[in-house]
């Protein structure tokens, strides 16, 4: 054994310090410009224009080479239940009965500016690309599914039926964007309910539409600030919760909620050894005093005996 006690304790010390080096600044930077990425792309979804034709679903299925669906894309009985993206369908259209009648809305990954899934991932399998896409790396994923728990929009799906499962979700057609093409769904939409462009331009367009048609739209762009902002933006005539969008999500990126805890980690690493070490010192000292006292007592008793003799 080449490790003696002193070296072992040293090793523990270094380990402790290393554990304290988890960055908390990286997850929510004070400098917003890096996160907001004005040049990144996004999609503006005008919910008032969607007619529920499911062309986007079909296009998504084709461009991502997904398996054929159980019901064909012109079967509208699928609207009888609320669906969510799955490992076999990265986008779905749902029908909502709202205060202003029947409305359809497309559901997919919203591509957060500061994605909760990426904060959650312990092997850094998720990345927010400069283009705007939130992409997932098959090479390192361990399949823990914490990203699915973290996502406030219930977007990532898991291949539960596979022995070598993947996380599956919309990539904002990352590869197609690189080839200069539109995302599959945007290209297929016959109603121009979806427009692709720079996020900063999309926000301007959305504000312009609201200004020109104040009766048609709510004065709010969902995704401009929600969850710290998303690359996917929505315009709607009815309150967003009526079309299945989470309106309790707030405007902080989800990573903000774990920042306090992560900042307390180094404190524990520094304070505990000091505190526990001193308790140990007290205990040891007590024992020594007791031992010495006993010995003294014994000696005194011994000499007394001698004196009496």
């Amino acid at each position: 054994m080449s490790i003696d006690r002193r070296n072992f304790l040293k090793l523990l010390g270094f380990g402790t310090v290393a554990l304290g080096l988890q960055p908390t600044r990286a997850i929510a930077s004070i400098d917003d410009s890096k996160i907001k990425r004005p040049d990144s792309y996004g999609v503006l979804c005008d919910v008032t224009r969607c007619v529920g034709c499911r062309s986007c679903e079909e296009a998504c299925n084709t461009v991502n080479s997904l398996p054929a669906p159980e019901k064909p894309f012109d079967d509208y009985s699928v609207f009888e239940e609320k669906r969510r993206p799955t490992s076999k369908a990265f986008t779905v259209v749902n029908r909502y009965e709202t205060s202003k009648g029947t409305i359809f809305r497309k559901v997919q990954c919203n591509h957060c500016l500061e994605p909760a899934c990426a904060t959650a991932c312990l092997v850094h399998a998720y990345q927010k690309m400069p283009e705007g896409s939130v992409v997932w790396d098959e090479k390192v994923c361990i399949g823990c599914r914490y990203c699915m728990h973290a996502c406030p929009f219930y977007a990532p799906a898991f291949e539960y039926e596979s022995p070598v499962p993947r996380i599956r979700k919309c990539t904002l057609c990352y590869n197609r964007i690189h080839e200069g093409k539109l995302p599959g769904c945007v290209e297929a939409c016959p109603m121009e309910a979806l427009i692709f462009g720079k996020r900063s331009d999309l926000i301007k367009i959305a504000h312009e539409r609201i200004r020109k048609n104040p009766d048609r739209y709510l004065e709010h762009i969902y995704g401009e600030l929600e969850a710290g902002g998303t690359s996917w933006l929505y315009l709607s005539a009815v309150p967003f919760n009526e079309v299945g969008l989470n309106t309790t999500v707030g405007t902080y990126p989800m990573a903000e909620y774990t920042r306090g805890f992560l900042s307390s980690v180094p404190l524990v690493l520094v304070l505990w050894p000091a505190l526990l070490g001193s308790f140990y010192a007290f205990t040891k000292r007590n024992e020594e005093v007791k031992k010495q006292g006993n010995e003294k007592h014994r000696k005194e008793a011994h000499s007394q005996e001698k004196g009496e003799n």
Binding site: L19, L21, Q22, P23, T24, A26, I27, T119, A120, C121, L122, V123, H124, A125, V140, C144, Y146, A255, T258, F261, L262, V265
Partner: peptide
């Protein structure tokens, strides 16, 4: 192999 230090699960 790959580190995600901003994740509580990493800790």
């Amino acid at each position: 192999r790959s580190f995600g230090p901003a994740s509580i699960l990493f800790l």
